[in-house]
Design a protein around this nucleic acid. Sequence first.
DNA 1: CTGAAAGCGCTTACAG
DNA 2: CTGAAAGCGCTTACAG
Lengths: 340, 340
Amino acid sequence: MKSKPTSFDIAFRAGVSQSTVSRALRNSPLVNEETRLKVQAIARELNYKVDKNASNLRSQQSSTLALLLFEDPTNDDSLINPFFLSMLGSITKACSDKGYDLLVSFQQMNDDWHAEFEDSNKADGIILLGYGDFVDYEEKLIQLIEQDTRFVRWGAEVESLPIVSIGCDNFHGGYQLTEHVIMNGRKHFAFLGEASSHAPEFFDRYKGHCKALTDNQLSVNQACQIDAISTEDSGYKAALALIESGEPFDAIFGASDLIAIGAMRALQDNGYQVPEQVAVIGFDDIPMASFTFPSLTTAKQNTKLAGELLVDSLIKLIQGEPVKTTLMPTNLIVRKSCGS
Amino acid sequence: MKSKPTSFDIAFRAGVSQSTVSRALRNSPLVNEETRLKVQAIARELNYKVDKNASNLRSQQSSTLALLLFEDPTNDDSLINPFFLSMLGSITKACSDKGYDLLVSFQQMNDDWHAEFEDSNKADGIILLGYGDFVDYEEKLIQLIEQDTRFVRWGAEVESLPIVSIGCDNFHGGYQLTEHVIMNGRKHFAFLGEASSHAPEFFDRYKGHCKALTDNQLSVNQACQIDAISTEDSGYKAALALIESGEPFDAIFGASDLIAIGAMRALQDNGYQVPEQVAVIGFDDIPMASFTFPSLTTAKQNTKLAGELLVDSLIKLIQGEPVKTTLMPTNLIVRKSCGS
DNA sequence: CTGAAAGCGCTTACAG
DNA sequence: CTGAAAGCGCTTACAG
């Protein structure tokens, strides 16, 4: 491996000083057009690239963002939630559009977790995606704030903390989905997913769901809210528990598509017809939602826009501009699983 | 934002020299146990983190790998091939297991493409995933070799170049799938996907497919090989073209799951029963393959193992150890779309 | 518009 | 085992 050329090599060949090379390569207006062109030509010829470690060290910024993806440690380690995978895709694209590099890391929530990336100057800021239990997570967030780390997160607004969150309007999404199914004549709903402060997004969906019920003179059956995390397996088990409970139901709201898909399978394995006997709805609109049988009615979270908003917000934060928590609307996607 | 502590701050507080701090933090055996503990305690207290830009600059290595994901520019820009998304997930995990950071970048093949990452010392090596047309891509690979860039790629072996490729045994996978469908009594196959040196992986699958046909005394109908790129849409159109061609067929081999899924939809939209009239098989085993109706018989590429192999191989390459091109076996996953 | 010089925060010979 | 010093390759005041 031949050693890489430095700005001094360029300077020598161009017959100018190294400072001028540095300026020319960054298109500084301070440098003469002719000089600039000559320097750039030589740089291209030698296949010279600025050493990012040196320039970052000197200028104290890295043009790099870090994405920390937390997975629920209880989840089987081979699979990543497809919703997060879509987010990852859109964040990656948004970063390259903005000229930032993206450092990606998977974390377990139980890891010793100190926002290494920003502290070690590898990234200018951090995007947080996912978490296990929100109550545990919140402590970490407080640490980040104390360390003055610049970060944005995907999720529901955290009213108690000065944090920039980008998320969907889970309440309204839950309301809209439920209302749609009510219009189709269903009366006895079950909700599969944790509905507590440990999972604020699910909780908001549940609150919207309940509001739609009471607005339509239907009652909420507490016994039909069964905890589940966002995996197919967990949805399957929750639906099984629902069936065994003996409670009557003609509609299931899965707090996420994965839960809904698992629930649908549990229903079918136990002889229930979907949607004839039981309507099923999910949340997220992951790619496979359109391929299930029957295809899944759900609330679409726009991952493309979400990725762009996360990246834009973080860059503004880094540049010291004010940034606000944003709530994006969801789209009701009507397919076959709810009987209309 | 309070300014970050440096190794000099630690040195001052610990009453030792900055060199000693540097050694202590990297657990150098040269430093006294007691000194080391004291230094580390102070570092923790001040929440000190080594500045990566400085240490990388000095030590000339970054403990960072770059993943370049190329997408077919003809593809709709909102979607990333789910197969690559799985690979991305497993590569990310493999990197963190090995203590490397991962820089992720999406590229368009038509971009000015110079392996910036390694040249600018941001990454020690590069993983290449995907490409548009192999013939164009090959030129880029030659450039990389000329620049002595350390990289590994996902894909079929390139015999003509000294490149480390990690890929699946596409030939055998294609053979096995085809043989399975032949055993179920199908005789007239169509192959949807480009089968030429522009797409070596698809070509290998096609060759395995053809070999299985001739080994079983069936003939290959050239008119039934129709080009398609790895998208649902392209598969849909290719199947339409097949239908319009008037050629007889009772089985379709989609060169990827996405193609097969598109083809299945085209068949169903045109009144064909899958698998009763036409058996359909795919390749990859992307997550949605098990959710299609009917569920898709396919050859599974083990993305978890693939990610680990890519990362391990690249790290060995960086460390100057010999690395060989590896072919991983595929797994035949029999589901409902092939009628057995 | 250009150059000489300082310095970003580390790691690593070198000397003791 | 420890410290003083050099230097990684840039960017950026400062002076002209």
